[in-house]
Design a protein around this nucleic acid. Structure first.
Lengths: 147, 147
DNA sequence: CTGCATCCGATCGGATACTG
DNA sequence: CAGTATCCGATCGGATGCAG
């Protein structure tokens, strides 16, 4: 049987699972480049096809096109209408896409603590608080506490 | 250049990035079955090879063996010495592995909200609080607030 | 500028059988 | 029980070139 995600005693007994939510989520986020794409669109506000291509070394137009289409079909990103510039396509997160950012934050936290040798020049592990500046960061980190 | 993960204004200027922490983290967690394995070892305390094999439909011994080896090499899981039963291997999370659970929690939160049609029998989206029972769950969810 | 088409090589992982 | 070994098919994605 498809199994509930967490140990029995901790789960509300009245909640009936059909499929594991982790498995469901990984369907989208499991593909190569997807997380880095969400990082660039969501955090860095890189919204143009060619800019995304430049910002992610190794990513090819073919795969970028595929990922954008998948994320769009899944309702995680959408094209913004920018009528001022014709022929220009801009990608943004939907509400669903914004909800994916806490996952990214946790990947950042994990990577900054456990892969500091690769991540930081000084090779010193850091927590989220040690990476982000106070005021703005709090707003982003706040998202972790929502929902 | 390999780029910092987040918009410039939000990042502490003195923190020099060498590689993106998201990219670093995805190296391990990006592979097929890995997240479900961590779910079963970390949350459900399924610790035996054959039990893991049964608990995850579609997973084959070959791939399970590979994933366990990768996770072990990366320091995320380890074999527990259980001297009472000879020939029995038990897998547990290391401290590093425990630190991966908040990522799983976020995947659960996302999946429960946005893939409710697949996840729940009654197809109703739920937040984490609506999935877990009060006392024990708080301890798990607390992990989200640490580090 | 934003993609799509074609081609092809590498890799990943599924099936099955087998071993200490 | 806890894995390995071998084989092979599918998929994924890189390279390149082209189109609206």
């Amino acid at each position: 049987m498809e199994t509930p995600a967490i140990v029995k005693g901790v789960l509300r007994p009245d909640v009936k699972f059909q499929q594991c939510p982790i498995k469901a989520s990984m369907g989208v986020f499991g593909r190569k480049w997807t997380m880095l794409l969400l990082r660039d669109i969501g955090f860095r506000k890189i919204d143009r096809f060619n800019h995304l291509l430049e910002s992610i070394p190794g990513l090819t137009p073919r795969v970028l096109s595929m990922r954008l289409r998948e994320l769009e079909r899944d309702g995680i990103i959408r094209k913004m209408d920018d009528q001022t510039s014709p022929g220009i396509v801009r990608w943004t997160l939907t509400e669903k896409g914004e909800d994916a950012l806490p996952i990214l934050m946790r990947l950042i936290a994990f990577g900054s603590k456990w892969y500091a040798k690769d991540v930081f020049e000084d090779k010193v592990p850091r927590s989220l608080n040690e990476i982000f500046t106070k005021p703005e960061a709090q707003q982003i980190v706040q998202r972790l506490y929502e929902s």
